[in-house]
Amino acid sequence: MIASDLRGDIEEIRSKYFRLLLVCTIIVAVGVVVEEIEHLASTGKWHEMLKRLGWLLVIIGVLGEGIFEAATTSADSVLQDFNNTLLAIATDQAGRASKSAKTAHDEAKGAGIEADKAKTDSGIAFRKSDEANTAASNAEGMAVKAKAQLEADEAKQRELERDLRPRIVAATGFPGVPGANTAPLEKFPGTELKIEYIPDFEARRAANSIAAIVEQFAKWKVTEFAVTLDPNVSDGVTIKRYSGKLAHGPQEVANESMLVEDADARANALAKFLTDQDWFNVDVGMDDWIKPTLSPTQILIIVGYKPSRHFLPEWQRKIEAASEEQEKRSREHMDKMREEDRQRRENLRKQFPNPFPTPPK
């Protein structure tokens, strides 16, 4: 833009010089014409005036022609030099552009080679990444299997330790304090407990542990503590409670039902206390119906051999575990129903103090 403006200025100056040159040429021509007229008028006043005017015009015109012709020539020279300079600059720029284009072409070619190499390296990297991911997945799978195997081994170890550990019960907390594990037993103070155990040291120690806890914390009374020689004693612990008796009349039936329910609650509270401390094969049953030996406030507990699950087949262990879990849920459900029934009876007793009045004679 600047070069174009400068070139235009030079051309404008050259044009002005050329126009002035033309003007001077015209002045010379006018001077010559005036001299010719002066020759025609050879005498008189106008002769001298025309002669001088003609010479003056010729002199001015010739001088102007010389000056402006030189100026025009100088402007042409400057313009030519300027054009040559622009041409040289353009040629140099074209050469540089060609060199830059060649350099860019070479660099692009080199970049293409590098790109191909990078593409190859990328393919190798992706393949190695896939191999690493596969190895990581395999390692993760092996870790999961190892963790599962470790957990199974730890479970078997805990089961073996439980089988080898003697049966002992312990009280958590203090009597009468909420949250103690003996709290369900403390609801039935004065319960008479009969304990029988097989002639085995571990069974005797388990029976002693039960007797000490229920007497000290639950305020139960151990009335019998003896060895049983019954060959049909089951492994684990068997708890028997009052089975009830034949009742006559609505009032007697209702009272007997309450006694049986209360006895069942006592027995289940003791069973839950034992199972919560990891004792298993704890069964709750009724006293003999034909020849009852237990009163409503008496509980009989028979301690047999400690059962061992570790040496049982896997399928049998699963069945026993599922059976115990089902029995635990059933016991909890029965406790809930028993408590709801007790509350209903309590409400009915408040509303109807004497539901079965004695008929008049």
Rank of each mutant, 00 (worst) to 15 (best):
T43S: 14
G44R: 00
G44Q: 05
K45D: 14
K45T: 15
H47C: 05
M49F: 15
L50A: 04
R52Y: 15
L53Q: 14
W55N: 13
L56G: 15
L57W: 00
L57R: 03
V58F: 07
V58T: 06
V58P: 01
V58S: 04
L63G: 00
I67R: 01
I67E: 01
A70G: 13
A70E: 09
A70Q: 11
A71S: 01
A71E: 02
T72V: 03
T73W: 11
T73A: 09
S74P: 06
A75Y: 04
L79F: 04
L79D: 05
Q80I: 09
Q80H: 14
D81Y: 08
D81F: 05
F82K: 03
T85C: 02
L86M: 09
A88I: 04
I89Q: 09
I89P: 02
T91E: 09
T91P: 02
T91L: 09
D92T: 03
Q93N: 10
Q93V: 03
A94S: 03
R96F: 02
R96K: 09
R96H: 07
K99A: 12
K99V: 07
K99D: 09
K99S: 13
K99C: 03
S100P: 01
A101Q: 15
T103H: 09
A104I: 07
H105F: 05
E107M: 00
E107N: 04
A111C: 02
I113H: 10
E114K: 15
D116T: 12
K117S: 11
A118P: 07
A118W: 05
K119L: 13
T120Q: 03
T120M: 06
T120K: 09
D121R: 13
D121G: 05
S122D: 10
G123E: 06
G123F: 02
I124D: 14
I124H: 08
R127V: 10
N133C: 08
A135G: 06
A135C: 04
A135T: 13
A135H: 07
